[in-house]
Design a protein around this nucleic acid. Structure first.
Lengths: 115, 115
DNA sequence: CGGATTGTCAACCGGTTGGTTGAATATGCG
DNA sequence: CGCATATTCAACCAACCGGTTGACAATCCG
């Protein structure tokens, strides 16, 4: 699917879909389990999941009766890069971010609150 | 204006609006000048500008007849932080990332190459 | 004043979105 | 086989979106 900035951003514009993404951050889930916490029909959730799939933000793999949903965070990269063009991440180039990741992983106390 | 993730992301979901933001990256502009390169009515652009204003992504200040549009890149921060929670933050807590952002913005030299 | 420029408002229109319901389609299990 | 489970499909609906046009308001200028 062509995951354009349009499809990605508009997929992210719905709170239900963002909540679904957050849930999938924890673990892969079946459609029914994704739907469980929401007060809307399963069919509605199914639609949200196809929107997310078309945006490339998740992938769905059928295994037996169950269709598993998996987060595909790479789809956020293009959008993230686009946003970085706008100043608010002044100086926060990806290299710096990688170094931050390394540092954090090596020594999580590095960025502790310093008061 | 309450600039929620909803309003920000849905504002960004339209290519015309993203193009407008990119133009404003260069310089502040009057409404008519913003509209000039687009093949649509001034009224349509005016609507897009109110959407961007409601999302907090731009501000508009009237000076005489002319209304100047100014980019407000800070509005992207919340959305950006939300997005960074996915994928690149594997195994990291968001609080640390936000502290990182603050520190980075306060002192960009913090993460200079250390070789 | 009177005319040109700048921008918004209001009404309208077709297409999309986010939800519903009920039927349909697989698949697994006893 | 026959039933329960898992998920989608199809039709429908109200609401919203992105665009149009024409009228309107405000400001500058000769």
């Amino acid at each position: 699917m062509a995951a354009t900035l349009d499809t990605v951003f508009s997929a992210l514009a719905d709170p239900t879909r963002r909540a679904i993404l957050a849930m999938l951050l924890e673990d892969d889930m079946a459609v029914t389990d994704v739907a469980e916490p929401f007060e809307m029909s399963l069919a509605a959730i199914s639609k949200h999941l196809t929107v997310l799939t078309n945006a490339g933000l998740i992938s769905q793999e059928r295994r037996g009766r169950v269709k598993w949903c998996k987060l595909e965070p790479d789809a956020l990269r293009e959008a993230s890069v686009w946003m970085q063009g706008f100043g608010m991440m002044e100086g926060l180039d990806l290299d710096a971010f990688e170094r931050f990741l390394d540092a954090e992983l090596a020594d999580p106390s590095l960025l502790e609150e310093k008061e």
